[in-house]
Design a protein around this nucleic acid. Structure first.
Ligand code: ZN
Ligand code: ZN
Length: 823
DNA sequence: AGCACGCCGACT
DNA sequence: GTCGGCGTGCTC
């Protein structure tokens, strides 16, 4: 074998590049290095790009000749940026969710790790002669002339210089480049995020007694320094000690203290100041639950648990014990929560338990904090990661346990780009790492409930509330009997509120619609005011005195006359949280209210503030959307009102029963204080609907059994596997035709698989429930199979055929596997 | 994704 | 003739 044969090639996922992985030659210097999981800079067409090495192979793919290969230009990382099991997870996601690997990696890496290069143009020798020689002012735009002048002046121009030129420079730049008068240079920004440093004062020796006695400031200086263990950030000293700068200079010169520059890791600011609850001893039931799971944690193997425990049954404490065991054994733990801003109590408990070893990860992190937390995780300084959906992709090494809290929560599903479900990805990550995974919920997803029942997952049940709190009383209010403002707050609910206030209790009112009125209707012709970009009605927001689209953000002035007929006046219909709050003020003028929805909660800290304010009884009522149903416990809430229990039931989706039941039971879990049972008032127009009835009995098991029976009859998940193929395009008829074509292909695939004995069902295509969104028309096609592998085969062959059909290039085809929403 | 190339209508 | 917008095809 000669030396040429021993060459090896790197298969690279090029970021901000094509969907397929490309092969590159390894430069001499990289022989023998394990490049997998590291970033490299590679040439790509006329430019350079950052790529992640996916594999190093001895043999080229058959379709490529050696001559076709280019060299890797630069190896960016000294060690793998992504641990091996995370690379495998990414590859699994790419295949499972039918999404290009480079794009999956873009979701994993903080964007600072694949920043855009800056493009500079330099005047060449030839160019200088050219520009000085011929002055042809005629036929050149202002931009072109300015460009030439700028080049003659400075010789090199960057993005900022170019942007400041008047219009017309772009085309001229191209021309100068093709003439060879200027040359292009791409400059990469630092692909390793910079660290923030802090000056730290370190106490080396104590100055003599006399001087200490002589200066109060020095005494204070030394006290503060000693209190913080002999090392203290300079900034803190400056804040706490007068004349600190003088004493730092003086003592440093004498060698009594040292001033050191240290790297600091910026942290999430949310729950830093919250007091955690005291440690509790486990109830016998909790102990039993820990006992069931501890073995899989101590000597890790892949084992999924469903921790099914009613609200207040103390799941958190169980997580903490098992995580502690994991950390004690030198492994790391990954904990997922639906929304970190709603989990500050949990965060405070974790912070108290794990201190510096905790890394908090959520979407609201500033980029600097995000980079630092990434570094904290990759460098092994974090042994516990607590975060939202995307934290399932955090680069933890040596994972020993994964916890998904409130696993039924739909916020684990990402409904754009890479459409993954963090719970399912967590289970796969656990499988790859061969460690246990705990799915915790008071209302497990039907899927997990089912797996728990069949034994595929181990079911661990907590039936008792820790403080022995009784279940709330449930009242169903038949709203069909009420009119006018009583359709917002029924007399029954008003009465319950009155009694609650008299008892000094607090109430929560839940309505999953924000704004004041849901839509505007023309009194004369019946037209509904719609968003110009989407097929949805515009919502009236009183505080803004505007109507807005909740899907694309479009807003406009409140309509006067109908634009359809030109004569009718537009009147508001339906109501949202804003109206509920107003009705509340009208009925109870003295009562203080807080409102929590996307309109009032503009940032994460507002959420934390509002929740704290309500917990400390600064208001009597909390009105809100989805947000108020999650996580929190409010010890003084004795009444929960569900303003419209039907809203999520109306969505025509096989999952609507499940999500409604979960929602109602989660809300119900908020009510109750001490031994006093809480009250829950469900306002509904379908008082006899089985989901409402099930919620009223608070028997989730029974609901699930019922629901599973009907899913089995209708052959819906978890008995089958589904993928939604979403076709979108800017033109209605083209999109419709493309969807129809895709439907025909789907049926061809169905026929082909049937011949192999593989059953498949194709449903649709049909216009999506929201037919137009952000100026794009939308159609759904559903592919149903009886096993995950059959679904894989079917969708793969469908996509393969679609890629060959040129006509389908004019639309966008995305696959949403295990869809949660049909919108 | 980002880039080049080619084609076309709008504008000096 | 010049400029920019858009559709098409390619990147190891
Ligand atoms: Zn009208
Ligand atoms: Zn819209």
């Amino acid at each position: 074998m000669n030396s040429k044969d021993s060459e090896s090639f790197a298969l690279c996922a090029v970021l901000r590049g094509p969907a397929e992985c490309l092969s590159y030659r390894l430069p001499e210097s990289c022989r023998g290095l394990n490049l997998v999981g590291r970033r490299v800079v590679v040439p790509l067409g006329y430019r350079e790009a950052v790529a992640v090495v996916v594999a190093v192979e001895e043999h080229l793919p058959a379709h490529l000749g050696k001559e076709a290969l280019k060299d890797i230009r630069l190896v960016v990382d000294e060690a793998p940026l992504l641990p091996e099991d995370l690379m495998r997870l990414c590859q699994w996601m790419s295949r499972y969710y039918f999404h290009p690997l480079p794009s999956v990696l873009e979701a994993v890496l903080p964007s600072s790790h694949f920043a855009h290069p800056e493009r500079y143009y330099r005047l060449t020798q030839q160019g200088r002669h050219g520009l000085q020689g011929v002055g042809r002012p005629e036929g050149k735009s202002a931009g072109g002339l300015a460009l030439e002048r700028a080049f003659l002046e400075s010789g090199e121009l960057g993005p900022k210089d170019l942007e400041s030129l008047p219009k017309g420079w772009k085309a001229h730049l191209k021309r100068l480049e093709s003439l060879g008068w200027i040359s292009r240079h791409d400059v990469w920004p630092s692909l390793v995020p910079s660290t923030k440093t802090q000056k730290i004062v370190v106490l080396r020796s104590v100055p003599d007694e006399k001087r200490i006695a002589a200066s109060a400031h020095l005494r204070r200086f030394l006290t503060v320094l000693r209190d913080s263990g002999g090392t203290c950030p300079l900034a803190d000293l400056r804040r706490q000690v007068p004349q600190a700068s003088y004493w730092v200079r003086k003592l440093a010169a004498e060698g009594a203290i040292g001033v050191e520059e240290r790297d600091i890791l910026r942290e999430s600011p949310l729950a830093q100041d919250l007091k955690p609850r005291a440690l509790v001893t486990l109830t016998p039931e909790q102990q039993a639950a820990v006992a069931m799971m501890i073995e899989a944690v101590s000597s890790p193997t892949f084992k999924p648990f469903v921790l099914y425990g009613v609200t207040g049954s103390g799941k958190t404490e169980i997580y903490l014990r098992l995580i502690q065991e994991t950390v004690d054994q030198g492994r790391t733990a990954l904990v997922l929560v639906p929304e970190i801003a709603l989990s500050t109590q949990l965060e405070a408990q974790f912070r108290a338990r794990f201190g510096e070893a905790l890394s908090v990860w959520h979407s609201g992190l500033a980029s600097g904090v995000r980079d630092d937390q990434w570094k904290k995780i990759t460098s092994g300084q974090a042994s516990v990661v607590l975060g939202v959906r995307s934290a399932v992709l955090s680069p933890l090494k040596n994972v020993g346990l994964i916890v998904v809290d409130e696993e039924h929560d739909v916020s684990y599903k990402q409904d754009e780009r890479l459409r993954y479900h963090a719970r399912d990805v967590a289970v796969m990550r656990a499988r790859i790492a061969n460690v246990p995974v705990i799915l915790g919920s008071a209302t497990p997803s039907l899927q997990s409930f089912y797996h728990g029942r069949t034994g595929r997952y181990t079911l661990v049940t907590l039936r008792k509330r820790v403080e022995g709190r009784p279940l709330p009383h449930m009242h169903i209010v038949d709203m069909r009997r009420h009119r006018g403002p009583f359709r917002v707050l029924s007399p029954e609910l008003v009465q319950a509120l009155k009694e609650t206030f008299q008892d000094g209790g607090q109430a929560m009112l839940f309505l999953n619609r924000r704004g004041f009125a849901s839509f505007f209707l023309c009194r004369s012709c019946g037209a509904v005011l719609q968003c110009p970009h989407c097929a949805v009605s515009l919502t009236y927001h009183q505080s803004l005195e505007r109507v807005l689209c909740h899907y694309c953000g479009h807003e406009e002035a409140v309509p006067g006359l109908c634009s359809a007929c030109g004569k009718g006046s537009m009147v508001p219909f339906g109501f949202g949280t804003e109206r509920v709050e107003e009705e509340l003020h009208r009925t109870f003028p003295q009562v203080k209210t807080l409102r929590m929805d996307r309109d009032t909660m503009t940032c994460a800290s507002k959420v934390v503030q509002t929740l704290e304010a309500f917990r400390s009884q600064k208001a009597h009522v909390l009105v809100g959307t989805q947000m108020i149903t999650k996580g929190h416990d409010f010890p003084h809430v004795t009444l929960v009102g569900v303003i419209n229990a039907d809203t999520s039931l109306q969505i025509s989706d096989f999952r609507s029963g499940e999500t409604t039941a979960q929602l109602l039971m989660q809300v119900a879990g908020r009510a109750g204080r001490g031994e006093k049972p809480g009250r829950v008032v469900l306002q509904t127009y379908n008082p006899h609907h089985h989901v409402i009835q099930a919620a009223a009995t608070l028997d989730y098991d029974h609901f699930c059994e019922h629901e599973l029976t009907s899913r089995r009859t209708l052959q819906y998940p978890p008995f089958t596997r589904m993928a939604r193929v979403l076709v979108t395009g800017p033109h209605g008829h083209v999109t419709a035709q493309a969807a129809a074509e895709l439907g025909r292909m789907g049926r061809a695939v169905q026929a082909a698989l049937k011949a192999k004995g593989i059953p498949l069902a194709i449903l649709g295509p049909a216009p999506a429930p929201i037919q137009k969104l952000k100026r794009r028309y939308r159609y759904n096609l559903y592919v149903k199979a009886w096993t995950a592998e059959d679904l894989q085969t079917a969708v793969e062959s469908l996509l393969e055929q679609a890629a060959q059909q040129a006509f389908l290039a004019s639309v966008q085809v995305t696959v949403d596997r295990d869809p949660v929403s049909s919108l």
